[in-house]
């Protein structure tokens, strides 16, 4: 259960920011030179939700007929808008110097890599779909199904408008569990790695062992990605919200406090930098 002093962790996660520099692709046709656009990106939100200003900025130097759906790329990799911004950064750019350099495109949309995102309703649908899936794992879907439509809307509006209190007034219900259970039924998590063809690893994992012992991040990784916890030499970094939590951290606590607003614990595994 969330204790008062852990609320600071929730706020720090919510207000996490990434400095980004958006540059128009040299392949785009412009009427005059396009200045880069600098923006602090909220880690917990989605690229297409927070980049209206970026689009307006570059449209000033482009003709309407040259503009199709905007998409983003970092060093040749299309950025999947449906991943939280912080996950994209941790995966693709966390070992590069800041700011995060993002290239903006308005044509040649990579159909085989990216989902289309024509309106904010598409983002909302994706976001709510993730919350429902997370609740199916935690509570067999009972909490989200018992909520009213306006409660769902409050979760979305809280994220869209970056309002911590509005969001958490509702989200705290999704983070509750019966005391006797010792935690959620299963932990909603996804493990991402750039070295695999597979987008992520997701499976069923209980927060408490059959003997009633709290399981840890290390236990999760030992079961699903043991290479990540081989210590000498250290080959991988395990990142959640841009930090490397201790492997001894209880997975239930991480799920309550370090989950994204979609209620998933997004874990990025990247090669450790060679010193």
């Amino acid at each position: 259960m969330i204790m008062a002093d852990d609320k600071d962790v929730l706020r720090d996660v919510w207000f996490g920011r990434i400095p980004a520099c958006f540059t128009l692709s040299p392949d785009e046709t412009t009427e005059r030179e396009a200045e880069p656009y600098y923006l602090l990106l909220p880690r917990v939100s989605y690229l297409t939700l927070v980049t209206d200003k970026v689009k307006k900025h570059f449209l000033k130097v482009m003709k309407a007929e040259d503009v199709e759906e905007m998409w983003f790329e970092h060093e040749g990799t299309p950025l999947k808008w449906h991943y939280p911004i912080g996950v994209l950064f941790d995966l693709h750019a966390s070992n590069s110097a800041l700011p995060w350099n993002i290239t903006v495109h308005f044509k040649n949309f990579p159909e085989q890599d990216l989902l289309h995102c024509s309106t904010n309703s598409v983002i909302e649908a994706h976001f709510m779909s993730c919350i429902k899936e997370a609740d199916a794992l935690k509570h067999k879907g009972q909490v989200i199904n018992d909520m009213q439509k306006k409660d769902h809307k409050q979760l979305w509006m809280g994220l869209q408008n970056d309002k911590f209190d509005q969001f958490w007034a509702m989200n705290r219900k999704l983070m509750e569990y019966p005391t006797e259970e010792g935690g959620f039924r299963y932990i909603p998590f996804r493990i991402y790695q750039t070295m695999s063809d597979r987008p992520f690893i997701q499976t069923l994992f209980r927060p408490v062992s059959s003997e009633g012992q709290a399981l840890t991040l290390g236990d999760l990784l030992k079961e699903l990605f043991p290479a990540a916890i081989e210590d000498e030499p250290k080959k991988f970094q395990v990142m959640i919200h841009g930090i490397e939590p201790l492997l001894e951290t209880p997975i239930q606590w991480l799920s309550e406090h370090l989950s994204h607003p979609d209620n998933f614990l997004h874990i990025s595994i990247i090669p450790a930098p060679s010193d």
Binding site: K80, E111, D113, H116, V122, A125, D197
Partner: peptide
Amino acid sequence: PWDTLTQQEHPLLGQPFFMLHPC
């Protein structure tokens, strides 16, 4: 429309697919 048939990332292939929502 947004709740029933949506474009999603295929969880095993990582490519855009349409999904009939399981709810």
